Computed example of a mutant assay.
Amino acid sequence: MLGSPYAARLLGGTLIGRLPNGMAPVAMLSGLLPAAFSAGSFLGGLVYGRRTWPGSTTRQLVFGSAAFLTGWLPLLALHNPYAATAAIALPGAFLTVVVACAYVTTDALTPTAGPARRTRG
Rank of each mutant, 00 (worst) to 15 (best):
L2V: 13
L2E: 06
Y6V: 11
A7P: 06
A7W: 15
A8I: 10
R9G: 11
L10A: 13
G12D: 15
L15F: 07
R18F: 12
P20M: 02
P20Y: 03
P20T: 06
M23L: 15
A24P: 02
P25N: 03
M28P: 00
L32G: 09
F37W: 05
S38E: 03
S38H: 04
A39V: 08
A39D: 02
G40S: 00
G40V: 00
S41V: 00
F42T: 07
F42C: 04
L43Y: 00
L43S: 04
G44N: 00
G44R: 00
G45T: 03
Y48H: 10
R50L: 12
R50G: 12
R51T: 11
W53K: 05
W53A: 06
P54Y: 03
S56I: 04
T57P: 08
T58F: 10
R59Q: 13
R59A: 14
L61M: 15
F63P: 04
A66Y: 05
A66S: 13
A67R: 03
F68V: 01
L69E: 01
L69N: 00
L75S: 07
L76G: 12
L76K: 00
L78A: 05
P81E: 02
A83Y: 11
A83D: 09
A84N: 05
A84T: 08
T85P: 05
A86P: 07
L90W: 06
L90T: 04
G92H: 00
V97K: 03
V98W: 07
V99D: 09
A100L: 15
Y103E: 14
V104R: 14
T105G: 04
T106S: 14
D107Y: 13
A108L: 14
T110S: 15
T110E: 12
T110G: 06
T112G: 11
G114N: 13
A116R: 13
R118M: 10
